[in-house]
Design a protein around this nucleic acid. Sequence first.
RNA 1: GCCCCUGUAGCUCAGCGGAUAGAGCAACUGACUUCUAAUCAGCAGGUCGUAGGUUCGAUUCCUACCGGGGGCGCCA
Length: 542
Amino acid sequence: MQRREDQIVRSLTLAVKELGHEVPSSGVHVEIPAREEHGDYSTNLALLLSKQIGQPPLSIAESLIATEAIRSLPHLVKVEIARPGFINFTLAATHLHELMVEVKEEGRDLFARHDFGDGTRMQLEFVSANPTGPLHIGNGWWASYGDALGRVLERCGYSVTREYYVNDTGGQIRTLGASILARRRGEEPPEGGYLGDYIVEQASRYLGEEDIVEAGKWAAEENLATIQRSLERLNIVFDTWFSQASIEDSGAVANVVDLLFERGAVFENDGALWLRSTEWGDTRDRVLRKSNGDYTYLAGDIAYHYNKFVIRAFDAVIDIFGADHHGQVASMRAAMAALGIDVDRLEIRLGQIVSLESGDQAVKFSKRAGTAVSLDWLVDEVGPSVTRLLALSTSLDRATTINLAEAKERSMENPAYYIQYAHARMAALDRMRSERGIAPAAIDDARELGVLVHPREIRLMREIIALPEVVRLSALERAPHRVTTWLKGLAAAFHGFYHDCPVLMEGISDELVAARLYLVEVARVAIVTGLDLLGVDAPEEM
RNA sequence: GCCCCUGUAGCUCAGCGGAUAGAGCAACUGACUUCUAAUCAGCAGGUCGUAGGUUCGAUUCCUACCGGGGGCGCCA
């Protein structure tokens, strides 16, 4: 779709040149204003030029709108100057009709697609929960975010790899094994062990040796399979499951510590090897190899990130962790800097804590204490669509409390029903069209859509054409929840249209039926595109 | 103490430095011989935590303070 904004920017550029000025290098916006009185598009250009050339913005705006470049803008009905110095363009409905044809021709594959990602190889690491138990709801929230962000980035031309880092070795696996063995003996898990009920159940099925490592690995493998199934229920599929044990066994950890040593970033103290991370902005230095000779988790993670950036040479990496891993951020960035890796290639996004409201109390999740509410339980309760849309309704930066009663309601409280119902209505219209032997919507010329002038139709068309910009911003700001916000608006516009603009009822002209059917098809392209970006199904009927 | 996130309507939350700050829910009122009312419409609800600063313009950016959440291991 040729974005109308770009067309207007080109005309404004010509207009500025016509007046003999330079276009400001940054800050110029052409946007769809929030208020309809402000027209279809609006620009702050005159306000910025005012600063640059020292003339009042209103008189600059006057000169601009008098130029040939502006007067000849396609579809232009009216151009107005507003208070501080905005220029507001009102276009004829024909500009919307034209764009509808473009969206329909692009279809689900091409509409709202961008190429600015330019094939950048980007790795997204997310979830990476230790296989010491089932995923909890917080994991599901951040998993939905990571997957949707990947979809948005892919639509903008990035080449995305989704990866899960599996902590299949080390102290937690031993603790897990010890907890299993204790339960099998009918005892309480040891101090610091895992207290969840699932451990008791697993212990009853463990037939192996009385060996904590063997028991731990057995349970971890089983847990990992469970985790994978939980994620697949949410439409989340990883490209790679990267084993921590594999990187340790390969000697890569020792190698990267050697490399850090060669670069002078390591020192010895109290029998341990330390990373001089304070030199790169960390609040304290970090242990890489303990005095007992074992490498720390951090050392393994550094080797893993070295593998991402140097061995596999991803152009950029986004790590998505829970806020409880905040402490790792400065250390990892320091380690990358110490290795001479451009720190800007590493982006770490932290998801704030998710809790569940049960009665009046918020339940905090702890896997060790066994109070984590499992993701599977929530998906059983409300289904995958509601889970994903709820997770993707708010910013990652906001700590959320899930209200189960509201999540189970089948109303607008639940964006999933509202949005999916809009799609089901579109699908129903198409079924009915087919049953009545009416040909699928087809238009040879945008002028055949000239009958679409009802305020409900206008609003729907305006919502549809906003998606490309929403997708662009979602990718740049790593904010897929913007797509959810847009979907709610689109669904609202469609429900309003559906209510006031009959498509297949008696007494409607053939021409209007054809145009409205076409509009419904275009709306369907848009809503399916949006839902797919979030990994949510578009049901034919509900 | 230090670091990160957050404070917007009664509640849950949107809001790329722009114009009169928006949705849903809850409360109240209205619309079903229908293309599925899982919908639509109306009404009501705001010192955008507080105080400064930058700017033509600040809910948005900066600083300080106050409230809430999270993190500061030779755990992972």
